[in-house]
Design a protein around this nucleic acid. Structure first.
Lengths: 245, 245
DNA sequence: TACGTCCGAATGTCCTAACAAAGGCTTGAC
DNA sequence: GTCAAGCCTTTGTTAGGACATTCGGACGTA
């Protein structure tokens, strides 16, 4: 049985038609209107029903295939993919992650300065003698300390204040300044905690920390953030989706 | 200065024109013929020079933008992106990873059986009473034990033998059977080692293991592998690229 | 019954064409 | 000299059409 998703296209909207379509179809899949394995209305039928051209329809479907929501096979048709492979938004800050699971985050700023740092400068692709904003935050989930996060940012963000860091996530601050990190290279490891980490996170020497160093870039490929974080391993794990599509 | 990349299009090839073009341009970027920041020949010029239509050119360029090799801005043009954000192939097995850095991997199979397992059945989307192939491998990098890897596979792979597991990577075995994992959901954490892990990996109680559980899917969204791995944290870290393009 | 061939359906590739929107640059008015 | 309006270049969106390729099933034949 082919499901006919109800779609409303607004030709007056500044949002491209293919994107409007993709969004509404994505909603129909993620909210369960369309079930995994369901056959999908074919391109020509959509073309006629919605009064859009085939390239527009194809582009919308392509977007959903790229997100792993649909699977297409030549000669056969298009179907809703297995729901568990749906890609989720991946580049989020810890702050957002915690909000999502209902644990109110808060932050204590342990240090805050602007100074030269060769390792960070290299990572951020800046001159080695450039002064770099850097700060260390202790992050809590509810009342429990969860992570020690050390970050370095290019000097153009020098207007960030300690107060701002306490009240919101770093990525939210960056977005307000018109910067949207879209790619990040991360290295994840584990080790015994340092004395500082034991003190701040309340750990015994046998309880390891999960470490993550991350360099994030905007769409143009400019580095926007370099970070070196240590998480309590008993309270946090990192979820990632890998794909080679 | 606009670089004119030498491109040869073979209209007789079964490979799509846009892909031929994308591949040759990608090579020019990754091998350094085009440098990061270089302006890129614009669409109309490519159209005329190569005798291809604009949609074909655009599709090739789009492919490279998706890989993070190019950056486009309306009204401005297309440029080669910062080289460090180039996405690398991400879904590899440990075996391939080790080969790449020149450390000869080898494998000892610790256990091998076919039996029911509710947790694995749920992860693989199989009936709970279905018999599942499962095995535990101890992986070495050179002479050093590196990881204890526990894997579960659907019964259709029951023809895999212990010998095969010793000589090759798991993903290579799957590929030979026509299965290509393309997406995986991973959870990465850390904890102190169990007694078994201490024995096999030669760890002290204070040396943590890095844990990764992974469920991999093929292009159609069918689960093909479930794994629960423990790595020596002092010899291994996990690199991932995140992106929300 | 078993097997191979043909056909229809669906997606994949490629083309031409037109207009919209965004950014930088030139030109002109003040 | 300064600033704004308008032009040009470039990419973004949409349309419509033609043909290729692949898959499954129907049909027919041995």
């Amino acid at each position: 049985m082919v499901e006919r998703v109800e779609v409303h296209i607004d030709r007056g909207s500044p949002m491209p038609l293919y994107h409007q379509l993709a969004e509404q179809l994505a909603t129909a899949i993620t909210d369960g209107t369309l079930q995994p394995g369901d056959p999908f209305e074919n391109e020509m039928a959509l073309t006629e029903r919605l009064g859009l051209s085939r390239p527009t329809i194809r582009r919308a479907i392509q977007e959903l295939v790229g997100q792993g929501l649909l699977v297409r096979r030549r000669g056969l048709g298009t179907r809703v993919a297995n729901s568990r492979v749906h890609r989720k938004a991946e580049l989020t800050s810890l702050y957002d992650d915690l909000r999502l699971v209902g644990r109110e985050p808060h932050t204590k700023v342990l240090s805050f300065s602007v100074d030269v740092d060769e390792k960070a400068a290299a990572a951020l692709d800046l001159p080695l003698d450039e002064k770099i904003l850097n700060f260390v935050r202790l992050r809590y989930a509810g009342d429990d300390p969860l992570a020690v996060m050390h970050n370095w940012l290019p000097p153009r963000f020098a207007d960030i204040t300690e107060d701002e860091l306490c009240s919101r996530g770093l990525y939210s601050l960056l977005r307000d300044r018109g910067i949207r990190p879209v790619v990040a290279r991360q290295t994840i490891g584990a080790r015994p905690p340092t004395a500082t980490e034991r003190r701040h996170l309340g750990l015994k020497p046998s309880q390891p920390v999960l470490t993550m160093t991350r360099c994030a870039f905007d769409a143009a490929g400019n580095p926007v953030e370099y970070g070196d974080h240590s998480y309590r391993a008993d309270g946090y794990s990192i979820e990632v989706m890998l794909d080679e599509r």
